[in-house]
Amino acid sequence: MIKLYDYELSGNCFKLRLLMAILGVKYEPVAVDFYPGLEHKSPWFLQLNPLGQLPVIDDDGYILRDAQAILIYLASKYDPSAKWYPTGSPNLLGEVCQWMAFADAITSTASAARLHDGLFYDFDIEACRTGAHRLFRILDEHLWFGEDQGNDWLCSGSHPTVADLACFPYVVLSEEGGISRQDYPAIRRWTDRVKRIPGFRVMPGIFPAGPGPKTT
């Protein structure tokens, strides 16, 4: 079975739990004392990932680090429909990779702000927040124009991809870093759509979607 080296309050771990829940993939979480124990910097963990970062998976002896890389691996291996990581379409695949890189930028701004405010990391908080707002403005515009074209998701096409799951957690947790999403209405609609994907699960700090529009 897949082992997920996991920390409950980590958005990067959550995105893997989320994809595995959606795909119905069974896994065994291995809790890592990220805070306050800093176990991800301990010798045994550094053997697993010399970067000292969560998450890491061990799939029957195959060890992989980096949340975005693991999303790609899991979707490629466990989604026979190939919709979550659409290798059949060069254009769509290009877009997925573009937004996966964007997710890393969200991690280094919005997630960093959350670590500063919640767990007292020594970061330049104003730079983190300004950077996150710049990304959110770009994301909101992209989603707004997408909705206008009938697109519900980050990439073109009618099905969500790993890019949506990669960007979702630290957007929706942004207020814990003092980054309001009040000015981003298209982001709010998109996060609600992600929450309605069948199999969606929550983590502390993320609530389920409210009752949806009635279909009679």
């Binding site: 309050l9 809790a31 805070y35």
Partner: peptide, 17 residues
């Protein structure tokens, strides 16, 4: 220790927002 801690952190993480 880690799972006793994790339980309480989950609870607190839910209270935070």
């Amino acid at each position: 220790d880690i799972s006793i801690r994790a339980f309480q952190q989950t609870i607190f993480g839910q209270d935070k927002p």
